[in-house]
Amino acid sequence: MDNASFIASLLAGAAAGTSTDLAFFPIDTLKTRLQAVGGFFANGGYFGVYRGLGSAVVASAPSASLFFITYDGMKGYSRPLFDQLMPLNSQMAETATHMFSSSLGEISACMVRVPAEVIKQRTQTHKSDSSWQTLVKLLRNQNGEGIRRNLYRGWSTTIMREIPFTCIQFPLYEFLKKKWALAANCDHVAAWQGSFCGCLAGGVAAATTTPLDVLKTRLMLSQTSVPVLKLARKIYATEGWRTFFSGVGPRTIWISAGGAIFLGVYEAVHSVLA
């Protein structure tokens, strides 16, 4: 990746992440409260839906920039490798490239996103604490598990959620863009067309990975570490299988609309800078 492409991915990713989080934060709050132990109204209901916005905004730009720098960079590096591994199937090589690159992008972004998510979700379900107060409590290490464990609680489950999500979203997003461009007999789709493709791809990925999102939310809200499988069995035994799809409506709506803005803004800014 040359300097111009690096800067384009950096700035386009930052703009995309910040605009999406600002626009759809209330829906994310409603989704978190639906998934939390005790249910929606016990965790705040419709009040204070912007609680935790500070941590989200601070992390939006760097996490999205990290994702797109890694994603765009790895597409160029890994495509020749997959072409060699799959010489007879160009479409499969392209899909594998997007899955591999987006997975590495998500892992990079989670270095920033996970601590911000922990702070954000605890603030969303707390009736008085601000994002700063939540951060201070985590840094005090009151549970004795260490600052790293407190800030990165739910790291493994977030990765477990993000990799399947991105392996569905980005290959589908790139496939839809490619087909639309071919149908229109042009090299690239317009920003609004990329936005529509992002909306559809994001909705499909969001609905499919909701159970993993529920587990991630419960782990981040837990005061102590809990093994993922043990938590899943406990939820199934005490609350039933439908709990794994708690918040599927808000999550799908939020990520569908968010995907439209996120990838639409990215396409628009990147086309100007690249």
Rank of each mutant, 00 (worst) to 15 (best):
M1V: 02
M1N: 02
N3F: 15
F6E: 00
F6Y: 00
I7C: 03
A14N: 02
T18Q: 07
T18C: 07
T20S: 11
L22W: 15
I27E: 10
I27Y: 14
L30T: 07
T32S: 10
R33E: 03
Q35M: 08
V37R: 12
V37G: 12
V37E: 14
G38V: 09
G38E: 09
N43E: 08
G44T: 00
G45K: 00
G48K: 10
Y50W: 05
R51C: 00
A56D: 04
V58W: 09
A59D: 09
S60T: 08
A61Y: 05
P62G: 02
S63W: 02
F68E: 01
Y71P: 07
D72L: 04
G73T: 03
M74S: 01
K75S: 05
G76I: 01
S78L: 10
L81M: 08
L85P: 03
L88K: 14
T95S: 01
A96S: 12
S102N: 10
G105H: 10
E106Q: 13
I107Q: 05
C110G: 09
C110E: 10
M111I: 15
V114R: 04
P115R: 06
E117V: 09
V118C: 03
K120A: 12
Q121G: 00
Q124H: 04
Q124S: 01
T125Y: 05
T125D: 06
H126F: 05
D129L: 12
S131E: 01
W132G: 00
T134G: 13
L135E: 07
L139K: 12
L139T: 13
Q142P: 11
Q142A: 09
N143T: 08
G146L: 07
I147P: 14
R149C: 09
R149E: 09
T157N: 13
T158A: 10
M160E: 13
P164A: 13
F165K: 03
T166W: 07
T166R: 07
C167G: 12
Q169G: 11
Q169V: 14
Y173G: 09
K178M: 11
K178Q: 10
K179N: 04
K179L: 03
W180M: 01
A181N: 04
L182G: 05
L182P: 06
A184R: 14
A184P: 14
N185S: 15
C186W: 11
C186K: 12
C186P: 12
D187F: 11
H188I: 10
H188W: 10
A190E: 13
A191F: 03
A191T: 00
Q193C: 02
Q193I: 02
G194A: 03
G194N: 03
G198M: 01
L200R: 07
L200S: 08
A201E: 11
A201S: 15
G203S: 04
G203K: 03
V204W: 06
A205H: 13
A206I: 08
A207N: 05
T209D: 00
T209I: 01
L212P: 03
V214Q: 03
L215F: 03
K216E: 15
K216P: 15
R218G: 09
M220P: 06
T224W: 13
L229S: 13
K230V: 14
K230L: 13
R233K: 06
R233Q: 04
T243V: 12
F244V: 02
F244S: 02
F245D: 06
G247N: 05
R251L: 06
T252E: 04
A257S: 13
G259W: 02
G259H: 01
H270K: 07
V272N: 02
